[in-house]
Design a protein around this nucleic acid. Structure first.
Lengths: 254, 254
DNA sequence: AGAAACTGTTTCGATCAGCGCAACACTGAT
DNA sequence: ATCAGTGTTGCGCTGATCGAAACAGTTTCT
């Protein structure tokens, strides 16, 4: 049922209560006691202590308990320290090392993708630095991932005209919409020679605690170095990296 | 500094550690032990237990500790269960999309405004995550709206000294009272440069089935992007959004 | 280099905090 | 009125928890 390696049991039980409440939403003292395998009174005292720190509060009607605003307060302090770039950087470094290619982090910003961070791959020729640049959404893997997090209505709002950059660029909204559907289904996006000939990129979503797509992480490099089979190799690395960052930002189960 | 009525001391100390970390961001075992007035080893064991639940994590470089992702996971569960946030979130999203600015939900908590949720606007960088923070009531549009829902007697109880943050901050109770009267009449509140220079916000009340003001919804952004005429444009969007949430909470049907 | 002064971590025995028990107050249903 | 629930509280016993001291590393000073 529980991990044997606890530490301070009393604290361990209290924290387990928080997890139980997170799972079931609301619970009474008796129910909690049952879940922990301890006596009612024990559960009560633990809950009372949690309550004194406002981590739980009891509903007015019937003495049941739920998570309280103290949690949000802690979360506020957490996100202040755990911002996207700071959390993503070590993961990006690892991914860049493992794949040997350049890794980028981008967010949606005013109808384009804004590149927030970049970690160069191990290769000799350095790509140019995208950080701070606004890049069209429809012609990049990052852009497609970011768009895939929006509903159709917002996609329409955000998209202007789909400029052509190469013969491979997607320029019709219908085709783009179909592509976005694929991205949502597969959980990643690929762009080969769509923005620039000879440039291949693959991107995956980064989600926050609510499950919203708040950013995109990509691996990119010259097309000759990233042919289809190589992309297939890199993909699982990218996906686990993006998921790792999502988890750090609170994207838990359920 | 500490409340004498603790409950389970072991748990109380552990939770205090979380609060300390929320305040200072990062701390070592020794520092934490000093703050609690306990021995190093005690602090260590408590921290280790918190770590096993991922509520704190250890920075790689130097063995210091900070709040971890477990907090965010709990926060996600908390907002999911608070009916207010759950009902408000889609409306906030829409409002953020329509206005392009950041939308917040705040409630009254312990003589200050507690920010429960935030949806970032389409602008480039995330402004500042207010969620979980306690903000002074007299210097924010949200605060004024929340105060406007109280009668004069309760306003007096809740208000302490009105600290000055900028030259625009309202610092006399008489002036604030007059402002609150205006807010009640108009049904919204504005704050330009009152908490922070260059920050403009406009807020409207969210009411429950009884008509009480239970929360406040705001649109905020840099003053240069929200001059008077722009505020006038955003206002109707905000008012209908706030009313929509109020309706979802049961306000309106007799 | 070496020592001193810091870290965080581990071990261990004494002790007091925290546990289970049982009684309590209360609500709603039978 | 009785029962079956709830959350809450006082009280002794006991083992989980605490603090001291030793350990294993860094960084800093001499």
């Amino acid at each position: 049922m529980n991990d044997a390696s606890a530490g301070v049991q009393s604290v361990d039980r209290a924290l387990t209560i928080l997890e139980v409440l997170a799972r079931v939403g609301e619970a009474g003292v008796t129910e909690i006691a049952g879940e922990l395998g301890v006596h009612k009174s024990t559960a009560f005292r633990l809950v009372a202590t949690l309550e004194s720190h406002r981590l739980v509060e009891q509903t007015t009607d019937r003495g049941r308990y739920r998570l309280g605003v103290g949690v949000l307060r802690l979360a506020g302090a957490t996100t202040a320290r755990l911002d996207l770039v700071q959390e993503a950087r070590p993961v990006c470094r690892q991914l860049a090392a493992d794949s040997g290619e350049t890794v980028n982090i981008a967010v949606l910003s005013e109808s384009s993708a804004l590149y927030l961070d970049q970690v160069a791959g191990s290769s000799a020729l350095q790509p140019h630095n995208w950080v701070g640049q606004h890049i069209p959404l429809h012609a990049t893997s990052n852009g497609k991932v970011l768009l895939s997090g929006l509903d159709d209505k917002r996609v329409t709002e955000v998209l202007g005209t789909l400029s052509r950059y190469t013969p491979m660029t997607i320029t019709t909204k219908a085709k783009l919409r179909a592509e976005l559907e694929d991205v949502r289904e597969r959980g990643y996006a690929v762009a080969v020679d769509e923005l620039e000939e000879g440039l291949t990129a693959v991107a995956a979503p980064i989600r926050n605690a609510h499950g919203d797509v708040i950013a995109s992480m990509s691996v990119s490099g010259p097309t000759f170095r990233l042919p289809d089979p190589r992309v297939e190799e890199v993909l699982p690395l990218l996906l686990t990296a993006a998921e790792e960052v999502s988890h750090r930002l609170g994207w838990g189960h359920r």
